[in-house]
Every structure is written in structure tokens, then in C-alpha cells.
Design a protein around this nucleic acid. Sequence first.
DNA 1: GGCCTGATGTCAGTTCCTGACATGAACCTT
DNA 2: AAGGTTCATGTCAGGAACTGACATCAGGCC
Lengths: 188, 188
Amino acid sequence: MGRWEPNARGRLEEAALALFTERGFEQVTVAEIAGRAGLTERTFYRHFADKREVLFPDANPLVTGFDKALEEAPDTAEPMATVSVVLDAVAAFFEGRHDYSRRRHAVVAANAELRERESIKLSTLAESLAEGLRKRGVAEPAASLAAESGVAVFKVAHAQWLAESEPRDLGVLMREALAALRDVTGAG
Amino acid sequence: MGRWEPNARGRLEEAALALFTERGFEQVTVAEIAGRAGLTERTFYRHFADKREVLFPDANPLVTGFDKALEEAPDTAEPMATVSVVLDAVAAFFEGRHDYSRRRHAVVAANAELRERESIKLSTLAESLAEGLRKRGVAEPAASLAAESGVAVFKVAHAQWLAESEPRDLGVLMREALAALRDVTGAG
DNA sequence: GGCCTGATGTCAGTTCCTGACATGAACCTT
DNA sequence: AAGGTTCATGTCAGGAACTGACATCAGGCC
């Protein structure tokens, strides 16, 4: 057995989500989170750059799956086809996580600082997606527009999925949103 | 003459932009900004909710013009037509502000916290736009998708405009981006 | 003249976050 | 097995962001 309890990072994430759920983000101090995880405040900041980041881990299965799907997507001249493949991978990630996603979303939605962090994380994903498209030969501004559109589709479908108590398949919702986007932009 | 110098808020905004340009956002304290404006730190926080907000005033001509255009846009069944009208108003706002926009953009781009704030402000604009479309009878998810697409078009065109030393007309760039968006989504 | 208003100042305190240094079990080397 | 190294964690001190409570005082109002 190691000197320290294993998975300090995971314990901090769990402690944080539990405390934020109970009392809200602002009403919880970093020292409390660390204490609940059997650690000190200073150690918290060795694992996370700031208090909010504990809810948005850099290395998480969503981002990993996203990057992998983006890399492995077949080459095609149609940027939205690549976007669609990546969105499928994202949908797969959320499979079986509806309850957890809702609890987490409640915490984030209740706090402006956390909504801000979520917003920039989505922007970062859009930028990754645009970069991936450029590497596949898609020119600007098509690459950025396709990437931003993809994130918009995700946002809309994800919000719909979260709102449903008996959720339909996120992949289906995304494909519907993608079709709706085509209608909206194409008809204008 | 009043007891205090007029336009405390404006003086704080000017002092902040000047100092941030000289030394960067992180290297400037709120006390310094206030001092340069002939005020105290506490007064700064009476005008702005936090340090970043001094660069993103709530009541500014961009938001005002945006809201006005959204309200006055003619009714139409085509959401992207409404979006287009609003984008024209936004383009008009930036007329003659190329140099200022570039200086300001340099400050924001250099700092993660400021990029975060900018990101959430754009999300808020998208939400306003979606709400405006809903009020005009556009159903979900079309309203949200049209709004997010509009913001994506703005982002792309604005970035292009900022990058040009001899800037073309932002309205033209936006219309081109809108056409490119149609191509990208429609062809998929 | 006296009272009220409202922007500002003063002050104390909490929390976030960081740098510098200390600790000690696990591991490696010889 | 002795001794040195590694590295996650602890301890401590401090700066800066932000907030609540109360004081000040010019200008307007009765």
C-alpha cells in the first residue's frame, strides 16, 4: 500500500461535486473540499489550476473520445460529414450518464462563474474541431463555420436531452438538430 | 461644478485599458486602475462587478444597437433573415473602430480569463437573439440554431476583419461568411 | 437653517491562489 | 542493508480579489 490514499484527484472531484450539490459553488471553500478528501488546500491547487477547474478536468473521457474520433474520422471533402462522425462519438460518451449529467448540469447552471468556464471549454472544443478540419484540407472560413455549427448542434441537442426525464438517444437528437440546422441556414 | 469629477465609470474604463495595454491584465491591480482614475478600489467595485467587467460594460453601444435592431427587425418566417438584419446593425457599430478594436482585442486575446469573459458575453448575445426569434414565432430548435449560427458568422467575420490591416467592410465579410455557412451546412 | 440623498472614502475581514521550503514513505543503487 | 533520490503532500507566509459596515460631505429640498 502506498503512503497516501490513492486517487487524490478523483477524491477531490467527488468531494467537490457533493459539496457544490449540497450548498452551491460559492458557499463551499477550497479548504472544505480538500478537507473532505483528506487533503489540504495547497494540494487541491496542485491538481487543479483553480476552484472551478475541479468540475472540468482537462483529461476526461469526453475530450479523449473527441480527439480520437477527430483523428480517426475518414477523409472526406464534406466538413459536416467529419463533424457528424465526431458528434456520434460525443453522443456515445454520454450513454448511460443521464442522471449524472443532470446533477452536474444543475450545479453548473446555478453559477455564473461555472457557466463561464463551460462556455470557454466548448469554445476550445470548437477550435480543436476547426483545427482538425483544416488539417484535412478544409479551408477557412469553412472550417471554423463547420466547427462552430457542430458545437451549436451539440449544445441544442444536449440541452434537449438533459430536459427529458425519459431521454431519447442523444445521437438521434443530434442528427435531428443537424437536419434542422440545414433547414434553417439553407432556406434563408 | 460637482463635488466629484464627472464620468467616474468612463475614467475607470480608460485607465484600465491603458494599464492593461502597457503591462497586461494580470500585472495590474484594481487599486492601480482606481488610483489612475482618481478613485479608490472600493469605488471601482461599485461600478463593476469584478476586475474583468471593466472591459465588458453591460450597457454599451454594441448591445444597445443589437437589442434595438432585434426589436425593429421586420417580421418574417425566415429566422436567418432576422439574424442578417441584426448582423448588419452589429457591423455598423464597428464602423470606424478598427484601431480601437484591435488594441482591445490584443488585451483580451492575451489573457485566458478575459477570453473566458468574452466567450460568455457572446453566449449571452446568442441567447438574446434566440429569445428574440422565439418571440417572433420561430420554434425550437430552429431559434437556437439560427442564433448560434449568427454568432458563429459574427465570430468568423470579426476575426477576419481584425486580421486585416486595410479592413474590408465588416458587413460584407459577414454576408460572405453567411453564404459560406450555407454552403458548408447545405452540402453535407 | 436643517434634513436627506447619493457617490465616494475608510477599514476590517474572507477567500482565492502562489512561492518557498519541509517531510517522509517508496524506490533505486551499490 | 545503508544511503541517497523521488515526489506527492504538508506547512507557512503573503498578495490580490472582493465584500459588508459605517463615515463623510456637497448639493438639493422643505
